[in-house]
Design a protein around this nucleic acid. Structure first.
Lengths: 132, 132, 132, 132
DNA sequence: GTGGTCTAGACCACG
DNA sequence: GTGGTCTAGACCACT
């Protein structure tokens, strides 16, 4: 699992970490049951503080993307991912709305916008299917 | 123009303001050339700090959504909205990616995701076309 | 709001804090909408680190006992408390079970156990109704 | 005696073990004088570390739920269970208080809470009286 | 060696 | 001045 952080980004490091791990799962590079590095090793690997990694893991744990197994350590939730809850739907819509609004302002058509989304969907699901 | 702010949101107030004005433009409720309230009056209307409104206006000006005339006051950019620049495309994709990734993780199909986006597109463009 | 911490307790400080604030709400000493001290001031008041207070507040926020208002600061959730969700019921039962089991082992009758619970219920709801 | 451990639980494994054995006694599935598996065999049976089982047994011994004979092995205390000591009462009340407080916050009535406790009491004492 | 907790001190965004 | 983020270093409980 390669993690790419942008230390200049406005997004907190732990958020970038969360996003990248979720993208890793979405792309199939990280599979249910698969172990994740310990907070300490990941932190030292990517050169950040262990508390920052810990916060990312805590958030992922809260949403049940990962779980902390007392023996196996941190693993991608083997029982599958959290579903499409009402809460989640609202959160997603709240995030999509300002993006769509700006796209509309800038003259993007419905088709163009959908194409962008489709393109990203493809990009994620087809990432590195053969290599690991 | 009715502004709805959530003081409990994790989003800064000025970001919520920016979003709502952009949504206002996208929905057609705010038209190019149309005046916006002054920093002072908007701030007192919705009960927030001057600086907060100022910051929102500054950001909107930077992206050329609005123009700030010393005398005429603040108006929606009469020369039309900013276009779909390369910068904007990258920004949008960067925002869509984690949303799409989480949707995929949670088992949302390409069609479901596109439907959500389409739904929001509709919702914005058909918002309150008659009433103000 | 008087906070009593036991630094020798096996319970983490932040958990004790969470419990005491919840007890404060349950007893009526803390009312919905009422402001809580800032993390910094509370931390210095009770002589602990601000991060510890922060963790307690974060947990209370997650469960919607409190919320962080951008203008008013931290307040007891004015929209009322979280309800009796399925999750909560399961959590509560999971906590009660070992307590009940040990009580049974030690020969406590159903009546005695219920009396204990009733006693505590009274104790909480009648705490300092007149004084603040 | 079937032991069900949750490796994802926040509760340490040894605590879960202690709880389950106490529940076993409370339910009547484990009777005074009855032998318990050796540290070694129990550990290998449920796939955990020797030390973990050992810690659980040590705690149970401290509270006199079990006796550890060098030769006879581990048995449920044949002289009966520990009584309702002052220490125990305080411990129990300290555990019940935050549970009751949260229940009150969430709007649970005295009757509802007592019903929950009664329900659990029943559940334990009627667990699998015939089957083992 | 693991995650969890706590402290201390720093910077930043926000209002 | 507020909460949020990040770092650094320490101790402990657990396995």
């Amino acid at each position: 699992m390669i993690i790419q952080l942008d230390m200049q980004s406005e997004l907190p490091i732990y958020t970038q970490l969360v996003n990248q791990i979720i993208e890793g799962i979405a792309s199939g590079r990280l599979k249910p049951g698969e172990p994740l590095p310990s907070v300490r090793s990941l932190a030292s690997d990517i050169g950040i503080n262990l508390h920052t990694v810990n916060k990312a893991y805590t958030l992922l744990k809260q949403d049940e993307f990962i779980l902390v197994h007392r023996q196996k350590g941190v693993v991608i939730n083997p029982d599958g991912m959290p579903g499409i809850t009402k809460n989640y739907r609202n959160k997603m819509r709240g995030e999509l709305k300002p993006i769509a609004a700006e796209a509309i302002c800038r003259g993007m058509s419905r088709e163009q916008l959908l194409l962008e989304v489709e393109r990203i969907y493809q990009e994620i699901t087809q990432t590195d299917k053969e290599n690991d």
